[in-house]
């Protein structure tokens, strides 16, 4: 594990999360996130090699519903929530890149 969190790493994370940080914010967040991560390294005092990861405390499996159509929302209600609508569709400014 790398030691100190860098400004570049925080800047990259902000881009991934679609957040824009000022230089001052970048400075503060780098320090604060660094502190939290340093605390998290406590976990490395244990040998966890053979421990299984638990993503979820819920032990039930195979939760499914039957393939039955239920009513959809009223379109006008949904579109009324949207910031910008054209021709019953959600309008967005130009998309610069293709989806992965």
């Amino acid at each position: 594990m790398s030691d100190a969190l860098t400004r570049d790493e925080v800047a990259k994370v902000a881009r991934l999360a679609r957040l824009v940080l000022s230089d001052a914010e970048l400075e503060v967040y780098t320090e604060q996130l660094g502190q939290i991560l340093e605390h998290a390294r406590d976990m490395n005092t244990l040998d966890l090699t053979d421990v299984v990861a638990t993503a979820h405390p819920f032990g039930v499996t195979n939760v499914v519903r039957e393939d039955v159509v239920t009513p959809s929302l009223d379109r006008e209600t949904v579109l009324a929530m949207a910031p910008h609508v054209v021709d019953h569709r959600f309008a967005v400014p130009r998309i610069l890149g293709e989806a992965p």
């Binding site: 969190l5 994370v13 967040y29 996130l33 991560l37 976990m43 244990l46 966890l48 421990v51 638990t54």
Partner: peptide, 29 residues
Amino acid sequence: KRRIMLGTYALSAGYYDAYYGQALKVRTL
């Protein structure tokens, strides 16, 4: 914002095992 960035970092390539993965193991413990 702080928590979104922290979580994004913990899940991102190269850090997942060291942070998120490790945390899931502590959860098991």
